[in-house]
């Protein structure tokens, strides 16, 4: 697997590259701004891109813009956006137009080799990756009327994993239950919350995030 790493901070760039090499990935290019990143993606045709959300010149959302460009122009390339912001709005913006093969993780999390490798593998499989901190922030919000109260404890667990972007198969493995049971849980959750999206589509992550953000 070939990966391009983009971050203006040398530490993150070198750290992520180091971990990737340790895990058997090939680092095709290391760049420090969005323009060079897009050029590197065109030249190297990598399988995956790891990009910092905040890069020169404006230090705002260059990483997100670049991710959207890459997803639009190179649909086969998975993009993992690294950030120091626990902001659901960023994650949802990333999912809005291209809900598959994208991920949003906090920087400190990818320094855990297992998490980084797992995230990249899921992206390569066509899944979505959303940082658990963001999901728990959304699920933990104070609500006057909690629409999630109707869910059982197990269903809440499944909902959290759905929101993190896990597939039914991955959820089954994580909770050590069968995939059929997961499917049943997902159908229950969608029914109880009144979600109309197809529970099997890639859009379900965005639908679940949108619901738990504003449905309470």
């Amino acid at each position: 697997m070939r990966v391009v790493v983009a971050d203006d901070s040398l530490l993150t760039r070198a750290g992520v590259a180091y971990l990737l090499k340790q895990s058997g990935y090939t680092v095709a290019a290391e760049v420090d701004d969005a323009g060079t990143l897009l050029a590197a993606v065109r030249a190297e045709e990598p399988d995956l891109v790891v990009v910092d959300i905040r890069m020169p010149p404006t230090h705002t959302d260059e990483g997100l813009v670049a991710a959207e460009r890459i997803r639009a122009d190179h649909p086969r390339v998975g993009v993992l956006v690294l950030s120091q912001y626990v902001e659901p709005a960023y994650a949802m913006r990333l999912l809005r137009d291209h809900p598959e093969r994208v991920g949003y993780l906090l920087k400190e999390r990818v320094f855990d080799q297992a998490i980084l490798v797992d995230a990249l593998r899921r992206l390569a499989d066509g899944e979505t990756v959303i940082d658990p901190t963001i999901v728990s922030r959304l699920l933990g919000r104070q609500r006057a009327k909690d629409p999630l109260a109707a869910l059982t404890a197990r269903e809440r667990e499944v909902l959290a994993l759905l929101a993190e972007g896990l597939s039914n198969k991955a959820i089954a493995a994580r909770l050590t239950i069968t995939e059929r049971t997961v499917e049943a849980h997902v159908a229950q959750i969608f029914g109880k919350l009144g979600l109309l999206d197809d529970p099997s589509s890639h859009r379900r992550v965005l639908a679940v995030l949108a619901f738990i953000r504003s449905g309470g």
Binding site: T60, D61, Y85, E87, P88, A89, Y90, R93, R137, L138, R141, Q142, R143, A144, R213, S214
Partner: peptide, 21 residues
């Protein structure tokens, strides 16, 4: 987030962090 997404994203972010509903 306010600078990037405007009032909408920032106020939701605020609601996520608030001590009361």
């Amino acid at each position: 987030i306010l600078e990037e997404t405007g009032i909408e994203g920032a106020l939701w972010s605020l609601a996520d962090r608030a001590p009361f509903p």
